[in-house]
């Protein structure tokens, strides 16, 4: 039985889709069978970020409504043969997602894949609550910025009340993924530090993804950042996050912290 992960945040634009694609690809790069499911019905983007936008035939809503089989809707990644995408519908709205339909799809995916990654839409409505409903693990994507932290707090509340696990009296595993982190600005005191966010949200840290041009470059070419440039700082951070997700006890380092004198001057990573 595969593990179901929801990538969520409340706030839009913090990096849910980027992170879903990057984590999904990183897991598949290790040989695991992974499917990334786009729950953003009406505003799908995961297909674009993963470079599969021209190959979408059927989508999640088609499968739920019985208009297509799950196997017809799944798109296999061209670069990684164990990575699949289940796109959202672009034309229908989120009312087409039914609780029973989603349960069936997730149930079927769990038996075929090692990891089912649900890319949640922003907000706290139907799409977001259905994306988190069947999750075993939640990854809360947060930017070191007040509105993002506030929305993450709200989402953590929903994870603890609206998920199946919570309703059955179990605890849902929650992890914080801090994205777009700029160590220099945090050091200057103009950005919330890692410890500030951790203290406020009090969930364990899965990883810190540095603010980086590489993320935009990867989405420009339609490739998860872990595939586009495996040695880039954000890719390395996602690979580490995946190792922690697998249960490895790997200390979290703040990206750019080990910058040497020359690194500082030239603004490049020392390692």
């Amino acid at each position: 039985m595969g593990k179901v992960i929801v990538v969520t945040s409340g706030k839009g634009g913090v990096g849910k889709t980027t992170s879903s694609a990057a984590l999904g690809a990183a897991l598949a790069q290790n040989g695991d069978k992974v499917v990334v499911v786009d729950f953003d019905v009406g505003l799908r983007n995961l297909d674009l970020v993963m470079g599969a936008e021209r190959r979408v035939v059927y989508d999640l809503v088609n499968v739920i409504q019985g208009e297509a089989k799950l196997t017809q809707a799944l798109i296999r990644d061209k670069r990684l043969e164990s990575l699949y995408l289940l796109p959202a519908s672009q034309t229908r709205d989120k009312d087409n997602l039914t609780a029973e339909g989603v349960e069936k799809v997730i149930g079927a995916l769990k038996t075929h894949f090692d990891w089912v990654i649900c890319d949640s839409p922003a907000g706290i409505e139907r799409g977001a609550t259905l994306a988190m409903r069947h999750a075993d693990v939640a990854i809360v994507v947060t930017n070191p910025e007040v509105s993002s932290v506030r929305d993450s707090d709200r989402i953590i509340g929903l994870l603890d009340s609206k998920t199946l696990k919570a309703e059955n009296g179990e605890r849902i595993e929650k992890h914080l993924l801090l994205t777009r982190y700029d160590p220099a600005r945090a050091e200057r005191g103009d950005m919330l530090k890692v410890d500030d966010v951790l203290e406020i949200l009090s969930i364990p840290l899965l990883g810190i993804i540095p603010e980086s041009m590489d993320v935009l470059r990867a989405s420009n070419i339609g490739s998860p950042v872990t595939l586009a440039d495996e040695r880039s700082a954000p890719a390395l951070a996602y690979f580490d996050a995946v190792r922690r997700l697998r249960g490895e006890n790997l200390p979290v380092t703040i990206p750019g912290e080990k910058r040497g004198f020359f690194g500082k001057i030239f603004g490049r990573k020392a390692a």
Partner: peptide, 22 residues
């Protein structure tokens, strides 16, 4: 002056209240 401490303090107060009202 640094702005991050203000962000931190405002969030702590706000969330303390929002968690209760939730």
């Amino acid at each position: 002056s640094q702005s991050a401490p203000a962000a931190r303090e405002r969030l702590q107060v706000l969330l303390a209240h929002e968690r209760l009202s939730a």
